[in-house]
């Protein structure tokens, strides 16, 4: 039983890593990427080629996979963000980019075409996935609350005003895109070393859609919101095995309903944290003198 739960948790945490990146880009910078599966694919392929063909160290391969994704994101980001593409234009460009990457992967020799790579060593364990997720969550939180993150939020809220305040739209957006691509690449590397087999058809627009759905449902402007949303999105299909075909229908419905009813997402701009525990403790402490009879054992 634990093996089964562990498997679900591993895949869920791996998806969370990719979502964290997209949170920075879509949630905090307000840009809409519909081709994020491509970054996951690039990271997965780079890392697995490095470990299975060049016998590189696993963590080094993960990092290089992430960097490779980041590098490709600069190639796509430079022309599109330089041209100050807004919502729709950028979304279409990333949509095309996602498809193009998949087609290229299907036709390259080193990726073994549409048949995919087999025999990738199983290096991702529950422990290292968990540790990497925690580490990357902390890094994301620091990014968001740093100068870069605050500039991103300013751009999301009003890019004209942000530009007038002296924020360079191009560099801030490109930095956010690079960050999110690196995260997606690392997530991809972990995924490849967990399932031991990858092929281009695994990284379709469905995956990009799930990521976007998690960010939107969790709340644009929150880190823990998408985190929790992605955990739910990954675990739900396992629980509702019967409704597998209807899972994506439900995602679509969730997106529309959230936009119509609660556009700020489930968590809104709030974060899930443990301050409420502190508050409870304070309350209990404040109550204690009022209830001396109950606090007798303390």
């Amino acid at each position: 039983m634990w093996n089964y739960i562990e498997g679900i948790l591993c895949l869920a945490l791996i998806s969370v890593i990719s979502v964290l990146g997209l949170t920075v880009f879509t949630g905090f910078t307000g840009m809409f990427s519909m081709g994020h599966a491509a970054f996951i694919a690039i990271g997965a392929y780079t890392a697995s080629i490095l470990t299975s063909k060049a016998h590189a160290n696993f963590y080094l391969a993960l990092a290089l996979g992430g960097l490779m994704s980041g590098f490709v994101s600069l190639i796509i980001g430079y022309p599109t963000l330089r041209a100050k593409l807004q919502n729709d234009y950028f979304a279409i460009a990333t949509l095309g980019f996602g498809e193009a990457v998949r087609v290229i992967l299907e036709n390259l020799k080193i990726t073994n075409g549409a048949r995919g790579l087999v025999g990738i060593p199983a290096r991702s364990t529950f422990l290292n996935i968990l540790l990497i997720t925690v580490l990357l969550t902390i890094i994301t939180a620091h990014y968001v609350y740093s100068k870069y993150g605050r500039q991103s939020v300013a751009i999301r809220e009003d890019h004209v005003a942000a530009e007038m305040m002296g924020i360079n739209l191009f560099t801030v957006r490109l930095r956010a895109l690079f960050f999110s691509a690196v995260m997606a690449g690392i997530g991809g590397g972990l995924y490849a070393h967990y399932v031991n087999f990858i092929q281009p058809s695994m990284f379709t627009s469905t995956q990009s859609t799930t990521l976007i759905a998690a960010v939107v449902a969790g709340g644009m402007g929150s880190i823990t919101g998408p985190f929790v949303a992605m955990l739910i999105f990954s675990a739900l299909p396992e629980i509702l095995r019967v409704a597998d075909m209807w899972r994506l229908v439900a995602y679509g419905l969730i997106l529309v309903l959230i936009m119509v009813l609660r556009p700020q997402g489930i968590f809104g701009y709030k974060e899930l944290n443990f301050k409420f525990v502190k508050r409870w403790i304070k309350k209990i402490r404040a109550k204690k003198p009022a209830l001396p009879a109950e606090g007798g054992d303390a």
């Binding site: 919502n87 859609t209 976007i212 209807w246 994506l248 229908v249 679509g252 997106l255 529309v256």
Partner: peptide, 26 residues
């Protein structure tokens, strides 16, 4: 009615698109 941002329209449209496409699949 709410004069929402363009981003929200796009996400809503994405939602409809996913909904219809997978409804046909299912």
């Amino acid at each position: 009615k709410r004069k929402a941002k363009t981003l929200y329209f796009m996400i809503s449209a994405m939602g409809i698109s996913i909904l219809l496409e997978n409804m046909v699949y299912a």
